[in-house]
Design a protein around this nucleic acid. Structure first.
Length: 499
RNA sequence: GGUCCUGUGGCCGAGUGGUUAGGCAGAGCUCUGCAAAAGCUUCUACAGCAGUUCGAAUCUGCUCGGGACCUCCA
């Protein structure tokens, strides 16, 4: 079997994944800022890295997956009026900052559950690690790479760049940064434009504030990830993940901070997912084009033609390679919904298929199926190409359905091949991709209602038996209006789907 | 303005120089009391121009278009 290769943003190439400690893997992923509701764009990294997490476990690694909650708030724009996102909004909504944080954290967790994302091993909060952050800042000051100004602390990027490859991750050059940095007001405090805040003195109206050696204030944006990653994963760990838009300045700054404190680039492999776009443009607050997850699931947004099930969204995301942009659209989502339905129906059938023959009746077909299944691992190992795995699965669907419809002999495939397909479908669809049937996912199955439904199906069958199609169609049509879809299968059975 | 990425058929998207990506939609057929589903067949592609090559969607150059980052950002 091939081995896992991932595209490392830090080196700009695909590299074989080797964990620092054999059998164990540490992964840090930048989590949400809980000052507002998550939107579709946010879903991507959390689904992408959930699959990475699941795949690493599938490969046998014991994984510690750390994903933070940013609940301390940052500047809207450094240098301008120092505004703390969370405290500002808290005043508007007349809530305690922590009340607001709790509300959106809960909502975030709910959304993650909807997507069937596994919980991370540790989900540390920024506010819970103020002490660690202060300690880290002290270390950086002692090392001579940070300076204090009016109660704030800034990282000296210029000095750092003289000794370390600043800009390597994001492909930036110091001189260019000098030229291209925009002129922001109130840069006076910083010695250099490129420097970034490690600690900010809190203005009087700022609600969230902590005591520090430099006075009351709050931590800079980048330091929390460095502090928490170090605490839970060590000075160096395997994977750091996040959206491409975090590459600079966030991850670049993390590297600088951790390098000074821990003498290592924190992560060996940097993985970045690409953006979800809408009409070709990145979905983001600044563009005012976000579709919140609650809107997506309920269909309540002008751009949405219908509600989309979380599993449809998950499938939609997995049909694209994680490093490509993915363009949102109703047609595309609907295609994902139907495609997933078809794939899942075939998966159901696969579980029930007669188990093939001792020796494959159709050696060529049998070989082809084996090859397609074998490729699942290859594609996945090639930088997590979920899109190609799904394409291969779809190629197996006509075979599965063919056997079901008896176009293909039940003995065409060997027992071993059928068993292999079953295992692979289960492993990939459920364990690795984290998909589940939207119908059972909808939950609420009621045994009494099932009985009622079965009764209707029986009555309809009897009506059909005496060619009373008026009655049989009435039952089918009215159930359909209620969102219960009956299908007469070739073998005379009736299958039920819920719209 | 700087750095980088990208341009695939109606839509979404994979693509390692030579072989059908795949999904959805469309058309025809088969099956079915009719539906639906399924199966079979089928139609639309590689932005443009030039170059390298026996051969390019895939490499190079130019042109045009789109985007990301440079500022909070998944």
């Amino acid at each position: 079997m091939s081995t896992l290769k991932v595209y490392n943003s830090y080196t700009r190439q695909k590299e074989a994944f080797e964990s620092l400690v054999p059998g164990y893997a540490g992964m840090y992923v930048c989590g949400p800022t809980v000052s507002g509701e998550s939107h579709l764009g946010h879903a991507r990294p959390f689904i992408t890295f959930d699959v990475v997490y699941r795949y690493l476990m599938h490969l046998g690694y014991k994984v510690r997956y750390v994903r933070n909650i940013t609940d301390a708030g940052h500047f809207e724009e450094e240098g301008r009026e120092a505004e703390d996102k969370i405290s500002t909004k808290a005043q508007i909504e007349k809530l305690e900052p922590m009340e607001l944080v709790q509300k959106y954290t809960n909502l975030f967790h709910w959304a993650m559950k909807q997507f069937n994302n596994l919980d991370p091993s540790i989900e540390p909060t920024a506010t819970g690690h103020i002490v660690e952050q202060i300690e880290m800042i002290k270390t950086i000051i002692d090392a001579g790479y940070a300076y204090v100004k009016n109660g704030s602390v800034y990282f000296n990027v210029v000095k750092y760049a003289e000794h370390y490859p600043y800009g390597k991750l994001s492909g930036r050059v110091m001189d260019e940064l000098l030229e291209t940095s925009r002129d922001l007001e109130g840069q006076d405090e910083k010695n250099n434009k490129q420097d970034f805040a490690l600690w900010k003195a809190a203005p009087p109206e700022h609600i969230m504030r902590w005591n520090s050696p430099w006075g009351e204030g709050f931590p800079g944006w980048h330091i929390e990830c460095s502090a928490m990653a170090t605490k839970y994963l060590g000075k160096q760990f395997d994977i750091h993940g996040g959206g491409m838009d975090l590459q600079f300045p966030h991850h670049e700054s993390e590297i600088a901070q951790s390098t000074i404190c821990n003498h290592h680039v924190p992560a060996r492999y940097w993985l970045h997912n690409n953006m979800i776009t809408i009409n070709g443009r990145k979905m983001g607050k600044s563009y005012n084009n976000v579709i919140k997850l609650t809107e997506l699931f309920s269909g309540s947004h002008p751009l949405l033609e219908q509600a989309y099930h979380p599993m449809t969204v998950r499938f939609f995301i997995l049909q694209t390679h994680y490093r490509s942009t993915l363009d949102f659209g109703n047609e595309a989502l609907q295609a994902a919904q139907k495609g997933m339905r078809r794939l899942w129906d075939a998966y159901d059938v696969l579980g029930k298929i007669i188990a093939g023959a001792a020796i494959a009746g159709d050696a060529e077909l049998d070989a082809r199926c084996n090859k397609l299944v074998d490729e699942f691992d290859e594609f996945m190992n090639d930088d997590l190409n979920t899109a190609k795995v799904l394409a291969s699965m779809f190629e197996l669907v006509p075979v599965i359905n063919g056997i079901k419809d008896k176009h293909i002999a039940a003995t065409a495939l060997s027992t071993a091949t059928v068993e292999k397909m079953r295992k692979a479908f289960k492993a990939y669809l459920e364990d690795i991709f984290g998909l589940k049937d939207e119908q059972s996912a909808a939950g609420g199955d009621n045994s009494k209602l099932d009985g009622v439904l079965q009764l209707l199906i029986d009555i309809r069958k009897e009506a059909k038996g005496r060619k009373d199609f008026a009655t049989s169609d009435k039952i089918r049509n009215q159930l359909q209006d209620l969102g219960v879809i009956l299908k007469d299968e070739k073998d005379g059975s009736v299958s039920v789907n819920f719209a």
